[in-house]
Design a protein around this nucleic acid. Structure first.
Length: 350
DNA sequence: GAATCGTGGCA
DNA sequence: TTGCCAAGATT
């Protein structure tokens, strides 16, 4: 075993994380779900979602048989909702094509939707102790510093180099522990800001530490300012207190989730609602706007509260429906929509 | 290669 | 308040 892996494993035995939920009862299914949730999402955020998800969907067949809205509702607030849709799709594929057993070859698991090169390696390393390299944000940061790479890890050539180094360093034995160890190092010591080099087991071999470049590696992504967009959301209630929600198309922002109807720019809400939704508004008033920041733009959300006399279903394609406030928790709702519905609920219960 | 896709924590 | 970005994959 190479020097790097040896030192890392010794450190991991004493200082690594050994009590994460998906490390207990370490099945391919549980590891798979955890790895999907952990894409671009920190451990502390994932843990409660993972526990709730596992309580509701304890195995592949349960997940495959569930309604999509049920899956989305357990993902609501976690973000990147295409992950939930792909997870659900993959579960169905596993039931239909793999007899309900999560495949454990790199080719078969990589073919499932939502599983890329790093996630595929992570699942098989963690759950099956198979020797595969991973290259997530932690590993990119650790290896960039260790080898003194000063170019941005997202660049193609740099990423290829990192994959090659990651593969070289991955040992034949204790692959699951090694994989967890290098991620733990990146998450707890070799952090983006304020790294604790004094506690690092490989500080003596680290190029960035030797040249004093730890704080400038990894290089930051070329940045650009975030554009700002406006959106008007309608909060329409009928005389029964039900609220009108819209199921969004599967692609784009909040794909497949339910949101409040969004009035197009330069449209009169009253006319638009009547023409498009078939809902006549009795009274309307604007509520305080607030800003929601996405990865690539700011969204200024302008809520309008309205009363409608209409009951029952709107339209007939299932894209628009009235919901009682109490049952909206069963739907997949993005965070700002939950916030607006909470305001309605407070108004009713107070 | 570049754009897209969420949310919460942090300085 | 604002910008940055974290256990990436898909198009």
């Amino acid at each position: 075993m190479n020097n790097f892996a040896e030192k890392l494993l010794i450190w991991f035995d004493r200082h690594g994380r050994h009590d994460l939920p998906w490390q207990q009862e370490r099945t391919p299914y549980r590891v798979w779900v955890s790895e999907i949730m952990l894409q671009q999402t920190q451990v502390a955020t994932v843990i409660p979602y993972f526990n709730r998800f596992m309580a509701r969907f304890p195995d592949v067949r349960t997940l495959a048989a569930a309604a999509e809205d049920d899956v989305f509702s357990h993902w609501s607030g976690l973000g990147y909702y295409a992950r939930a849709r792909n997870l659900h799709r993959a579960a169905k594929i596993i039931v239909e094509q793999h007899d309900g057993v999560v495949p454990t070859t790199i080719e078969q698991i990589s073919a499932l939707p939502g599983i890329g090169p790093s996630t595929a390696g992570a699942i098989l390393a963690q759950a099956c102790n198979q020797r595969h390299p991973i290259l997530d944000g932690n590993v990119k940061r650790v290896l960039s510093r260790y080898y003194g790479f000063t170019t941005w890890p997202g660049e193609k050539h740099t990423e290829t180099q990192l994959w090659n180094r990651a593969d070289e360093l991955t040992p034949d034995k204790r692959v699951a522990d090694y994989t967890q160890a290098i991620m733990d190092l990146g998450a707890t010591l070799c952090t983006r800001r304020n790294p604790r080099c004094g506690d690092c087991p490989v500080e003596n071999d680290c190029a960035a530490a030797a040249t004093g470049q730890v704080h400038v590696i990894p290089a930051t992504k070329p940045k650009r300012g975030l554009p700002t967009k406006d959106a008007t959301f309608m909060m329409v209630q009928n005389s029964s207190g039900q609220v009108l929600l819209v199921k969004r198309p599967p692609t784009g922002i909040w794909g497949g989730l339910w949101t409040l109807p969004e009035v197009p720019p330069n449209e009169n809400p009253a006319q638009w609602s009547h023409r498009v939704l078939g809902v006549a508004l009795n009274e309307s008033r604007t509520l305080p706007p607030f800003r929601h920041t996405f990865s690539h733009f700011h969204l200024n959300i302008k809520p309008i509260y309205s009363i409608s006399t209409q009951r029952g279903h709107v339209m007939d394609d299932g894209a628009y429906s009235w919901y009682n406030l109490a049952e909206t928790s069963k739907l997949g709702l993005p965070t700002p929509v939950k916030r607006l519905l909470q305001q309605l609920d407070n108004k009713e219960t107070s």
